[in-house]
Structures are given as structure tokens and as C-alpha cells.
């Protein structure tokens, strides 16, 4: 029995590099793990909600297990007692993974310059993207995902590859 094709447009293949194919698959399936400890978490909820709809960028599956996530979104103040917990969550994530420090507190400690707040999670984690703001607006979270997509596309080195930073 003959198979009838609706279209017959020449050869059914195209050429690419394997890395490019892999990156194409990865860039639209960045699954975030949210580590929300402060008011930044509210903005994260706004970004994930219907209004801003982060699903448009392929990041709609919020994984609350680090083992299924690609992107660690640290939204909020991290203190010294919390740091080992965050470190362990980061260790549990599978490669490749990206870390986003959202807001002033996660990036630099914010205005909590005191005995208990870590002055930026880059003290113990390789951070790929810093989002400024207190708290940042949801567009900036979307922008961080777009930036990670660009990193995947161009094969730019991750923060992990040049970790720890020597100053």
C-alpha cells in the first residue's frame, strides 16, 4: 500500500552541530527552583503568574525539588544559618545549572550589614546572573532567563567554570 504524502519538498534533513542541537533543547526548558526567603519571593510569584507568564520563555515548570531543576533562583536575604542549607540545595542540582542572585540582599547583603547576613551569596556559590533591585520587577526575572538562554546559545562560560573567583 502506497503512502501518500501531503507535501513532497525534497530532502528531510538539515545539518547542525550536536552542541547547537543540545543548546536549542536546553534553552527553552530552563526549569527554575525558587529559594524565596523574603519579599523578592512575592515578585517571583508575580513573574510566574499569568500576568507576566514566564512560561513564554520555556521556564514554566517550577520544580520544588533541586534534583529536577536547572536554575537556582535565590530570592531574598540569606543569613549564615541558612547558607549551609542553600549550599546543599545547590550541590543537589544536576549539571548543567545556573544560579541567579535576585535582589540586593542575595547579591550583596542589601542594607543588612550586620553580624548574621551573608554579604552576597557569591561568598559561597558561583552566581551567573545578578538582578538589581529591592525588590526587582518581574521583567527583570524574565530578563535573567533570557540572559541564561543567550549564555546557552553562545556557549559562554558559566560562573562555575571560573570558580572560586580569585581577587
Amino acid at each position: 500500500m502506497a503512502v501518500t504524502r501531503a507535501k513532497d519538498g525534497g530532502p528531510g534533513f538539515f545539518t547542525t552541530r550536536f552542541e547547537a542541537l543540545l543548546a536549542w533543547g536546553r534553552r527553552f526548558s530552563i526549569w527554575p527552583f525558587t529559594f524565596a526567603t523574603a519579599c523578592c519571593g512575592i515578585e517571583v510569584m508575580g513573574a510566574f503568574g499569568t500576568h507576566y507568564d514566564i512560561a513564554r520563555f520555556g521556564a514554566e515548570v517550577i520544580r520544588f525539588s533541586p534534583r529536577q531543576a536547572d536554575m537556582l533562583l535565590v530570592a531574598g536575604t540569606i543569613n549564615y544559618k541558612m547558607a549551609p542549607v542553600l549550599q546543599r540545595i545547590h550541590d543537589q542540582m544536576l549539571e548543567p545549572k545556573w544560579v541567579v542572585a535576585m535582589g540586593a540582599c542575595a547579591s550583596s547583603g542589601g542594607f543588612y550589614n550586620n553580624y548574621t547576613v551573608v554579604q552576597g551569596i557569591d561568598k559561597f556559590l558561583p552566581v551567573d546572573i545578578y538582578i538589581p533591585g529591592c525588590p526587582p520587577i518581574p521583567e527583570q526575572i524574565i530578563d535573567s532567563i533570557v540572559l541564561i538562554q543567550k549564555m546557552i546559545d553562545t556557549g559562554a562560560p558559566r560562573a562555575r567554570d571560573r570558580w572560586p573567583i580569585k581577587i
Binding site: 549564615y80 547558607a83 549551609p84 549550599q87 554579604q119 559561597f124
Partner: peptide, 13 residues
């Protein structure tokens, strides 16, 4: 207690 004193970061336990 010194205002600028920082404690060492402890790793996962």
C-alpha cells in the same frame, strides 16, 4: 561586639 565582624561561613552539615 565589633559591628563589622564577620563569622566564617559553615558548610553543609
Amino acid at each position: 561586639y565589633p559591628k563589622a565582624r564577620r563569622q566564617p561561613t559553615v558548610g553543609p552539615q
